[in-house]
Design a protein around this nucleic acid. Sequence first.
DNA 1: ACGTGGTGTTAGAGAGACCAAACAAAACCG
DNA 2: CGGTTTTGTTTGGTCTCTCTAACACCACGT
Lengths: 247, 247
Amino acid sequence: MTDHTLDPTLTPALEDYLETILRLSRRFEGLVRVRDIALARDVKPGSVSPAMKRLDELGLIEYERREHVRLTERGAVAARRVDARHRVLRRFFEGFLALPADLAEQDACAAEHALSPETIDRLVRLFEYMEMCPEGQDHLQRFHRCSLVHADVAPCPNDCPGDPIALAERTDQMSIADLTPGQRGRVRQIEGQGAIRQRLLDMGILPDAEIELARVAPAGDPLWIRLQGFELALRRAEAASVKVQAR
Amino acid sequence: MTDHTLDPTLTPALEDYLETILRLSRRFEGLVRVRDIALARDVKPGSVSPAMKRLDELGLIEYERREHVRLTERGAVAARRVDARHRVLRRFFEGFLALPADLAEQDACAAEHALSPETIDRLVRLFEYMEMCPEGQDHLQRFHRCSLVHADVAPCPNDCPGDPIALAERTDQMSIADLTPGQRGRVRQIEGQGAIRQRLLDMGILPDAEIELARVAPAGDPLWIRLQGFELALRRAEAASVKVQAR
DNA sequence: ACGTGGTGTTAGAGAGACCAAACAAAACCG
DNA sequence: CGGTTTTGTTTGGTCTCTCTAACACCACGT
């Protein structure tokens, strides 16, 4: 696992400290105290002190007396870099994937140290594209309406063929439960909601996965599939909510 | 930063071990040795042994003699969960963002422990949507052609209004360099390529950012902007490649 | 049977990050 | 002022993950 901290000498934790200092600088006009950092990062002051010492040694911040921490120019550059990545991810999660704000924030924090600069760049290109192509916007909204927001209830307000409800009414759709033992298929859509859906995804039942119905219990209810060389048991209700393309 | 390891007792490293064991099981039919794991994860066998001990204590694997490691049912469930997330991310990075395979793999490895289950779910919904809506596919391809693959050279083969080259020829586009000092604008597109683009993104010059041209050096070349309350220096060439919507 | 390699384990050490608690220094305030 | 509170530092300890290096197996093969 490569670590995409942007400066090889910077660990993810130190990057987080820099980012936090940058944000607090914006808020408090440069008067950032150890206490504020500890609060913002939800760690104890005793953890912050040594980190500040480290950043100071690296020439990324300056202590101001026993009072304030200030970013040096080099530190500010590094901090802005992390912050920019954070913003990109946050926007992607919230604006594109329509995640709730708190989750978007959380995931952005976690992913900002992990992803390559290229990936971030691609996301930016995605934003540019979405904004430049009017159809892009339409499409995104459609995506949100069809699949994301309140996916548990709302039918697609358009004629979108991907709408789960429209799909459920189509008779040409088969589910795993409709396969005959030994028959293979390709997963097209997971219709289950909530915990069921989560369980299916966790098992590796993802769009495009190749699946074979291995066997069915006499009662018809537990049901075994082969997926990537392993057998998995599914309840009938779960199997029925996985739409497949038989082959 | 919350850690989205799926079982609270599992650290990212342990999850990685589980995932590795799962993959090697597929490859070697369950005959997984410490050596293989060490090779796959690029660590020394001396690091693997204690990790196996830990996983065994947690009831996630079984040692087979001094020879082989086998996932228990609980371990397999956890491993498949991690693996599923990995697949989703890999597909997103490679198939959707058109990252090269090696980078997609790398980033998937890094992000699979960091993101919330909801985020993964949204990505799956995105795949489902893209596959169900024929226009989704078209749109994605357009996005790739316009903005991603070989973005340094290729013009958009369609009439896409977001095509960088088409854009460059449009006269209604202003860049930061065209603003008058004190004027504000909203970033719409970053046209620079390679290192310049990277530098601009790193500074926080991202689509939709609010920018003000603070002042221009007498010679006209260094040029200062205000961004999120801070002043940044830009070279004229850099400024010229940031297209803005003046206001 | 006896070395010889390939493998696995163990022990010791270090890096990084954190906490708790004792301590030091300001700051605040009657 | 002098005492109390707030804030920061230091120390010692924990945890996780890793490495190196010494050691223990086992398996083979002539």
